[in-house]
Design a protein around this nucleic acid. Structure first.
Lengths: 344, 344
DNA sequence: TTGAAAGCGCTAACAG
DNA sequence: CTGTTAGCGCTTTCAA
């Protein structure tokens, strides 16, 4: 770090003035003469002076970096969120330190600790599946660390949150399946404890009920690891396919589950949608080239990232501590394609 | 940052000893009595003491963070590389600061400057497509910043590099197409100036020549933006399809190009592989569920990230400046599927 | 308009 | 074994 970099002191020495004068000149303070300013600026330019951010952070108690904690980067939704986060953060002079939890509580814990230790100014987080207890976040939040949740949120901390309209996304998806003539709609979802699971499940149930269809618990399959392990998806699918009254459609709740299921059905030579229809939450841009083209519920990841970051930076930079917190809900988009072609 | 955090001074005061004693006790120095150590440790524990990394960095001239510059995160290959980078970095106590260039030279420049300013201890970089001039990297490298290139490398800086065997990957792919009976094999590749383009092109040509097939320049299409814009891929494809002697197979050189081409061919109702075969470099895990399942050249992204990071950390931590530099080449894997089914 | 001095939190050389 | 001191680079009073 700071490889042979020039410091304020060096400039001061070269110009025969004091370090504080240089510091002030550099930030165009009114208490420095134009002449001196010009001299300093030129000298700084000449040596390509870059302020040492560590020193500045140490002094000012601000690091100008944001911590980002997500389950995994290898996911269309999250990489789009990251793009959104970056776009806002950079424009406001923040850099981001990104970490993945891989859905593990222990990793989330250590990543968060590590970030806090790293003196981040704020934290953006989407909880891991394993995370049931968020004391680690409460502690930091109570100490004054601004936190904004997105996607997988917790109600145990009062702060800004950014989510997709998971309820409506699931509701629309299920309704579309029903309208297309499917009656026995299974739901393969993520772990039972995370926020998006509950919301999506609610939407699914509501659509069924509104259409006079029974909610059959046997049609609801949880993947405790959120589909990280292909085996849990396989088990869920096999269970469904082995049922006496097996489903005629599957509504999958996550990106990974959706794309994996399509692969598994392929392997089993089960035709979509003839044998079973498929519709899922996924942000893949390849949905239309999958075989068959895949109906999808799309979340505006980029916008969600932007919004969350904007809110976080507001929290960080606002003079007075926030007292009003917002939960911003973004609409999802339903794309209907061959995988849910109408039976009617 | 450092929200209400306890400092060494606080501990010193509470225990009625000096700050330096605490500092030494904390690092288990032999010049501190066991009794004091125990006291200090307990007190630190009690208050959940966390050293301030800024202060430590400032003092030690090390930030324990690595800069990572990649074209885009929204790419299977790169997100796998990141996973590899993270896995090694964390285990060695480094955190990573990641930035995307989106294939733009200006963004690469500002990201690199920003990272350098951020006092990173080392840099991992895969060059953007627009980058022809790497003076920005040379400058930092000359100032002593350890740099490791991966994937898209430059020969203008002597340092460690990690790449896939692009030549062999392309050679194997092309050979496979030839053996499957295809004779007019087009190559849609990335921008002409980046390293991987040249290497893959060479492999493609070599395979053709070894099999007595002509290298037809008209069959080679460059995408100056690396496929970032769908239009350039579309143009390349249309050009090929409009040729009198149009190709019977396409070998695509990048992840994005490959998946986009399959979509475009779909739209045009051109059957793969009956009308035209397709084989490409891509790390998508969905290759086998695409329509048709996609033959692919797979690069070991995770391992490449691990290796590059290991090398970088070695550079950073080695006492004497390195004089010998390595270019590590990872083998690619060819998966043959329906999109290149034999014509014979 | 400029400079001297103190201090952010931590470490390391040197004294005691 | 423990304390004093100085300093990393920068900012910010306060004094000149």
């Amino acid at each position: 770090m700071n490889f042979g970099a020039i410091t304020i002191k060096d400039i001061a020495k070269e110009l025969g003035i004091s370090a504080s004068a240089v510091s002030k000149a550099l930030k165009d303070s009114h208490e420095i003469s134009e002449k001196t300013k010009k001299l300093v600026l030129e000298c700084a330019q000449k040596h390509n002076y870059q302020p040492n951010p560590m020193a500045r952070s140490l002094k000012q108690g601000k690091s100008k970096s944001l911590g980002v904690v997500i389950p995994t980067i290898d996911n269309n939704f999250f990489s789009q969120v990251i793009d959104g986060i970056e776009s806002v953060a950079y424009s406001k002079g923040y850099n981001i330190i990104m970490t993945q939890t891989h859905e593990l509580y222990d990793l989330e814990l250590s990543n968060v600790e590590h970030l806090a230790m790293r003196s981040i100014d704020g934290l953006l987080i989407s909880l891991s599946i394993e995370t049931e207890n968020i004391d680690h976040l409460k502690r930091l939040h109570n100490m004054g660390l601004p936190i904004v949740f997105f996607d997988r949120v917790s109600n145990e901390i009062e702060t800004h949150k950014v989510i997709a309209d998971n309820y409506k996304g699931a509701y629309d998806a299920t309704t579309h399946l029903i309208r297309s003539g499917y009656r026995k709609i299974a739901h393969i979802t993520s772990a039972v404890n995370i926020s998006i699971t509950a919301e999506r499940l609610k939407g699914y149930c509501a659509a069924l009920e509104e259409n006079g269809l029974p909610v059959n618990d046997k049609y609801i399959k949880y993947c405790p690891q959120g589909g990280k392990a292909i085996t849990e998806i396989e088990t869920a699918l096999t269970d469904l396919l082995n049922m006496q009254d097996k489903p005629d459609a599957i509504f999958t709740a996550t990106d990974r589950t959706t794309t994996t299921i399509i692969g598994l059905l392929h392997k089993l030579k089960i035709k979509i949608p003839q044998d079973i229809a498929l519709l899922g939450f996924t942000n893949t841009q390849m949905a239309y080239v999958l075989n068959p083209s895949l109906s999808q519920v799309y979340q505006p990841g980029f916008e969600m990232g932007k919004k969350a970051t904007g809110m976080l930076i507001n929290l960080i930079e606002s003079r007075k501590p926030a007292t009003e917190f917002e939960t911003v809900v973004f609409p999802t988009q339903l794309f209907t394609r061959e995988s849910t072609k109408s039976l009617l």
